[in-house]
Design a protein around this nucleic acid. Structure first.
Lengths: 349, 349
DNA sequence: TGTTAGCACTCGATTTTACCGAGTGCTAAC
DNA sequence: GTTAGCACTCGGTAAAATCGAGTGCTAACA
């Protein structure tokens, strides 16, 4: 039962100033200590000038309204998902520490290489920066156009279809033909494929030759292979950085196992991140993403765009008890840098 | 201090039959129960017809010789690395369960797609089969020959060098030129590159044009990019399956964290596997691989070859307390299947 | 009416103690 | 060389005792 997150922020979450302060104090302390927070530490800590007793009264109210929970009688309070949600919704944009800022600048000043490499490195950066597990997603090339297609023959029946797209990605497909084709025929097929496909996107229909000769058959085979890729997630790239952090950050072997298991299924991770992005949200807390096995996790995402188009995302996965401000700032900073990195690179207008 | 593993098996490991039986019983039971093993259970269990007291005497000897250890006085015995080593050295080849055999057959009968996909799937198979973490390594294409080179231009200064090798791998390299080049020049460079490189390996030196024109510069740039790849591990492929199993199989969060951290550094994993392969060994137990952070692990490897050449390996990583027989059988079976899978595919002689 | 001090009470966490028993090493008899 | 017998060790578990952080409630207070 996923809690729906609407674009208008905090539909009815209106807490008076003091309750808000108390909630915030509880979140901050609990994130820091991982322990239930008692009334007295809140009373001292925050810039409230009230007694613990008053705080207690407020806490009872906050609990009734679902922002806090009590692990058991006579323990302190712990934020609920709803409590965290209020907290992040009312978080003013965090600033990154100077050391981290420098680290990011440094990184993007020196990083080079293929897009794939950059994304992979970025995922490591993010994970180092935040000490949570990071996910970097590069969207598939659904509206990239074909720059070049080439059919290379390995032997009489095996060929390799290599396609270059305008976004710089390269795909390969094995073509296993039921008939033999020689070098000349393959070259000709290659030429025809180029003529046919260059400039098109994979979504576009193309007119394939219906003749029955070897060349036409090769062409048809190749085109269908390429287009078969579309409906699947193929072409999506996922880079997961710091999965070892899972063991640090979650307590309980069971949780660790579950989260690691999820991370292994990269398709799942991609769709999770994209779901969250689609909702227009940057943070999904606990059950909000509607993905039960990760109900003790929070996921923070930030889109990476190019020409107004979302071409990927960076994400961070940690426990709901997470340093939201820092992590959100890091995700945002990195996604911005990535955006300009690719933007600057592709100045081919 | 890595224990050297020489080709001549068990240099001085000669235990009389009874000691061997006892050691074996201890290993088997401890692998099964994860508990120290006492003299009485050994006396009952094994087909020894001696009393616990006798077993105890033998155990004292085995401990003195370094095959067994005692967690503390008045606990049972636990095998040492040396104990496990003796055990696996004297293991007759295990047979796979019929269910597993079927699973493997099934898998290789139905698997298709690119080599990379097959290897990745295989790593999942292995991990399912054994419930340990698996590592599948594909060697780089160091002696594959170039089948095709193509330079595709993205814009005036950005080009993409796409190379197809005889082993079916495809690489891409961004070429960022300091000068502009038009479509025609790039095509010509592409043509020349083909003439120059087709049929060569990346190890071979080629005669690049020394002229100063755009085309020659492009060609030189491309060739140097390709050759720069060689010394690094690039081209190595690693597929790790079931890293979540780490959390099941090792006790202690600390160990889990450490092992996961290692697994993240894929280069490390590759070199570990290749080290073990180089030693001509199939099992590295505990400190044998000389890699301290994995001192509580055993690694089982099996090479995958093609035409007598080792083209990759499958590996399994678990605790030293591991089901060696089963796992070795699985690794061997899968590596055999992989070998014939690729062997059968590439019948282009 | 909202705030606070006071207080009895709860209940998980920690420490203490007691105890059990699996397993050992040794010795003496077979 | 093997075995039964036996005293001894020591980790693991369970029961008991204790502690104290934190609560909810009530009554007094501003």
């Amino acid at each position: 039962m996923a809690r729906r997150v609407k674009t208008p922020p905090q539909p009815k979450s209106n807490l008076d100033a003091r309750k808000a302060t108390i909630l915030e104090a509880v979140v901050v302390e609990h994130v820091d200590t991982a322990q239930p927070v008692g009334s007295s530490s809140v009373a001292q800590n925050a810039d409230l000038v009230v007694s613990p007793a008053t705080v207690r009264t407020e806490m009872v109210a906050l609990e009734r309204e679902g922002y806090l929970a009590q692990p058991h009688t006579s323990a302190g309070r712990v934020p609920t998902d709803k409590g965290y949600r209020y907290f992040v919704d009312h978080l003013e944009a965090g600033v990154l520490g100077p050391a981290q800022q420098r680290q990011i600048k440094e990184f993007f000043a020196h990083v080079r290489g293929e897009v794939e490499d950059v994304l992979e490195q970025t995922s490591l950066l993010l994970s180092h920066l935040t000490s949570y597990t990071s996910v970097v997603v590069g969207s598939g090339h659904s509206h990239a156009t074909v720059l070049s297609v080439q059919l290379v023959n390995l032997d009489a029946r095996h060929h390799l279809l290599v396609t270059v797209f305008s976004d710089g990605t390269v795909t390969k497909h094995s073509v296993l033909a039921s008939f033999e084709a020689d070098h000349v025929e393959v070259s000709e097929a290659s030429r025809q494929l180029n003529a046919l496909l260059i400039g098109t996107t994979l979504e576009a229909k193309v007119q394939v030759p219906s003749r029955g000769d070897t060349i036409a058959k090769l062409v048809r085979e190749a085109v269908s292979l390429l287009h078969a890729e579309m409906p699947t997630m193929e072409g999506e790239q996922v880079y997961i950085g710091g999965s070892a952090k899972v063991a640090d950050v979650f307590e309980g072997v069971e949780t660790v196992r579950k989260v690691l298991g999820i991370l292994e299924q990269e398709l799942l991770v991609v769709s999770l991140v994209e779901d969250i992005l689609d909702k227009g949200v940057t943070v999904a807390i606990g059950s909000e993403h509607g993905f039960e096995p990760l109900s003790s996790c929070a996921v923070i995402v930030a889109p990476v765009s190019l020409d107004g188009e979302t071409i990927g995302a960076v994400g961070l996965l940690g426990p709901t008890r997470m340093k939201y401000q820092e992590v959100m700032a890091a995700a945002e900073a990195v996604s911005k840098h990535l955006t300009t990195h690719f933007g600057g690179e592709n100045e081919r207008a």
